[in-house]
Every structure is written in structure tokens, then in C-alpha cells.
Amino acid sequence: MKKTEYIKLIDTTRCTACRGCQVACKQWNEMPASRTRNFGSYQNPPDLQWNTWTLIRFQEHVDKNGDFKWLFRKDGCMHCTEAACIKVCPSGALYHTEFGTVGINQKLCIGCKACISACPFDIPRFNQETEKVYKCDLCYDRLKGGQQPACVLSCPTSAITIGEREAMIDKAYRRLDQLGGKGVVYGDKFVGGTHVMYILSEDPAVYDKLPVKPRIPASVILWKNLFKPFTLIGMGAVAGMAALHYLIKGPHEVHEKKEGDE
């Protein structure tokens, strides 16, 4: 089967922060609401939650020229090609779908939370009650049914669009041209390319909770690429050495002192 890789492009320069996507996501995925308080911002819930897979982040920013900007960023899973979460997931709950996106099968999830710390974008969230981890699955069920993700469908200004990988990367750069080069395409240059990409109006460093150079954490690489194999290699090697020792040197016999030796 030929794989069609999809990319969801989030053009922050078109987003009006209407949060249609935030609600549409909850509706489609049947996620309950939390009782929140106003903490002095439009942003709410304050962060992603197990039941909030996508969140519009509101940020008041004054740029270098002293111009005020109100920045909106739809946060959520980036669907990495080199996905740290998949790398650390022991159960196979996290996996790459045929669309290149990162799916999650809660039935398999054991709630070990490894993905939570591994994800360079701080995406997966744990539910204490179900002991499972949740995150955006790029509406895998809808994609399979030939439908657009719920958030994409809800977006009134076409700030979120989805399409085949190459076409979307192309579209992102064309939009950048249209913006007179004022902006940044984010997502194609790291972790093997993400399947969610941004067009940002500002430098990535400006945005709350957006890593400038996301990558699989060194700790994960050390763990998974070195320590993990070496656990078996180490134990095996030591066992082998012991066997060799036994064969060559034999057991370390106790030299019984003969009666009357003294």
C-alpha cells in the first residue's frame, strides 16, 4: 500500500483565535470540559490537558520595533517523523499511522508516562483516573474515513489546512512569500519533519512553550540507543565470561584442610 503522508498546516497569520478548533476537537473526541477560572488571560484551560488536545495560546508581545502584537498559537501534537514518544513507548500504544501521523491506542497504553517526558513539545497528558495518556491523533478516524480533522473543518479563516506532505510544504513557503518573507516556516527542519507545521509571524523563540530547536532528547537517545541494548549485551557478556571462567578456571574449590594439618 502506498503511503500518503499528510501535513496539517497551521497558519498563525490567519488565525483569529476564535477557538472553534479547540471546541471542535473536544466535540469530535468527546472530551469533557474542566471547570476553570479566569487567570487574567483569554487562554483557557491554562495548558493542554488530557481532555484538551489542542489549545490556543494567547500571548501579548512587543517586538523589536516596539510594535504590539497579540500572538495566537494553536498548540498540540506535532506528529513528528522521528517521534520521541514512539521511541520510548513500551506498549506500542503510540505508533506511526499510514499517514505519517502519530496515532495513539489508549487500549494499549499502560500509563507509564515515558512519552510525557520524552516529547520535545510537551504534548502528551496523563489522566489519573483512566491511567492513560492522551493527545491529538490528527483525527486518525476521520482521516481514515476520508474526512478532514475536526479542527481543520471548523476553522473559519482557513488558518488550519491539511493536505499531502509535499504540497503542504510548498504551500507553506508560498505563503511565506506572500507575507513578504516576514515569518517563519516551522516544522520541516527537525525531528525528521513534523506532520503539523506552522507559519509563524515571529521568531520561534518569541512563542511560549515552543522549542526553537526541538529534537529527541539526548537522554532518550542514550537510553534507547545505548543503555537499552547494553543491558542485554552487558548481562549476556558477563554471563558468557562467567561460563568461560567456569570452563577455563573451573569452580573456586574450597581447599579443605586435612585433619592434622595443623
Binding site: Q22, V23, K26, P32, A33, N38, N44
Partner: peptide, 26 residues
């Protein structure tokens, strides 16, 4: 008004998803 509520909020305040986004007067 705000995007998340509709007029007096008499309809939208009962909708938990909307209330979650704009929970109280500011």
C-alpha cells in the same frame, strides 16, 4: 461580548466547553 459566549450567555454559559474557555466575568 466575547466569541465564546452568546449575548447574555443564557445559552452558552450552560455549555461546559464554552464555559471552560471563558469561565467568569473579567
Amino acid at each position: 461580548s466575547c466569541t465564546e459566549h452568546w449575548c447574555s450567555g443564557a445559552l452558552t454559559r450552560w455549555q461546559a466547553w464554552l464555559l471552560e474557555m471563558q469561565p467568569e466575568l473579567y
